[in-house]
Design a protein around this nucleic acid. Structure first.
Lengths: 249, 249
DNA sequence: CGTGGTCTTGAAGCACCTCAAGTTCGGTGG
DNA sequence: CCACCGAACTTGAGGTGCTTCAAGACCACG
């Protein structure tokens, strides 16, 4: 093949970062959830969180387990996965710094179980808090609760948008959408392109776009030949964002 | 055709209810959002809401408009619709008493536009509040904010479940899921069946299940012949819930 | 230098969509 | 009260985008 992608670009490196106290403070301070808080309040909130670190491939929480903790991802990346009854796994999102997961439901509401599984994609470090303690933070600091509402409604509208696209467009358009979404969230400039900073397999992308690995591979090969994206083993970069956007049916 | 569905069952009637002051109070009092509030607080909250009524087929809010109000549906039913760039309309939900819609985003967040269109399915009455005033309610009454977080996270997990099913199952299974979901939300006992209390066309159901009207019609005819559901013009009833559940791949 | 996971490519089959026509029914006006 | 009209629904037939199955190539890793 002539235009085979030759130089296997330098893979994005996922540095291992210890969950130091300073890192914790920084994560909390930068998180939109707590951006309305005073310095002293953040210190107080920080005390209620604990931190933990994981190797690549570890399961942080598992769907079906009792939902006891609320997590904020500090460094690294993780997959947000929904297991289907059929056994198939659906990938909903790649979580990165500042993203939330875990227990977020009320006690009376729902069965009190995690709805999704989270598996690390790299060495990862997170901070977490008992869900009851988190709820008391929300009542102690109403502005945090307001931010939480915002965060959820944002994620909800994203889910709704994806739902709309899933039903009414081609595989190519869905993949383009997934790639643009990931690039917006995880993109880093690299050789004039936008590298999606996460180890993404074709299967991952296929799962997010609700298609098969093979179809995903075919479409992405085509996109590469057309100069819209660049991709190799476990990595993807966007070359021509406007061109990709035109594909969103 | 032999087993043609003969007697066009008495259509569910959507009574017109005026947005009286007592109704308003009742809606607020029964809504989980305010269930932690004292009698006096509810009275105070009630004062900040206004009410409005609509005829069938009216557009309450339109996607793209400036998001200025937060709504709670009081009586009647409405469609939550997402317009696609392609012109296609995707039906996300049938809203009924107690459901929220409208402005729910933070001011810094997002473009401050409604993301969806809401069109009444029957005469409808709703109460609403300026989104800034609603946000100050959330900060004034932290427990309400907590309930809001719960409500959104519930809707989010529902959306995620639907996302998972859309990609990985057959049209039949998707339609079964949509029908069960609607029945859980809008079902009313009727002649030993569970009537979905809303005027649903095949097109509506097809849109929710991300399929074509024709495929939806075919599948539903089949389900009827197998005795799992019953259906006519603009109505559906579940006959055999366990039977339907078996179809969820 | 082998081994396994990742990715590609081909070919066959099918579930679903689209197009098209016809039927049924609820509503409306004569 | 009946005849008509249009919306909702059904059914058929054909085409196809996608999945599935299968095999091979590539590359990172030990």
């Amino acid at each position: 093949m002539s235009d085979r992608h030759d130089s296997p670009v330098q893979m994005p490196v996922f540095e291992y970062a210890a969950c130091t106290a300073t890192l914790r403070r920084r994560i909390l301070g930068n998180n939109p959830l707590f951006s309305d808080l005073q310095e002293g309040d953040i210190k107080e909130v920080n005390r209620r969180f604990s931190s933990q670190s994981f190797d690549q491939g570890e399961t942080v929480i598992r769907a079906g387990q009792r939902a006891e903790r609320f997590y904020i991802l500090a460094t690294g990346a993780a997959k947000l996965i929904q297991p289907q009854e059929s056994g198939r796994m659906v990938l909903h999102d790649i979580l990165s710094t500042g993203d939330y997961f875990g227990a977020i439901f009320g006690f009376g509401y729902g069965p009190g179980e995690y709805g999704e599984t989270v598996i690390t994609d790299s060495p990862m470090c997170s901070i977490s808090i008992d869900s009851r303690a988190f709820r008391s933070i929300l009542t102690d600091y109403p502005k945090v609760a307001l931010r939480a509402v915002d965060a959820f409604s944002n994620r909800l509208s994203l889910a709704y948008e994806m739902l709309g696209r899933l039903g009414s467009s081609s595989v190519e358009s869905r993949i383009a959408f997934v790639l643009l979404r990931l690039a917006a969230k995880l993109g880093r400039p690299w050789e004039g392109k936008t590298l999606i900073h996460a180890p993404l397999t074709r299967e991952d992308i296929a799962s997010m776009a609700a298609t098969s690995t093979e179809s995903c591979s075919r479409v992405m090969s085509d996109l590469r030949k057309r100069g819209l994206i660049d991709a190799g083993r476990r990595w993807v970069a966007i070359v021509d964002p406007p061109g990709l956007e035109e594909l969103l049916s």
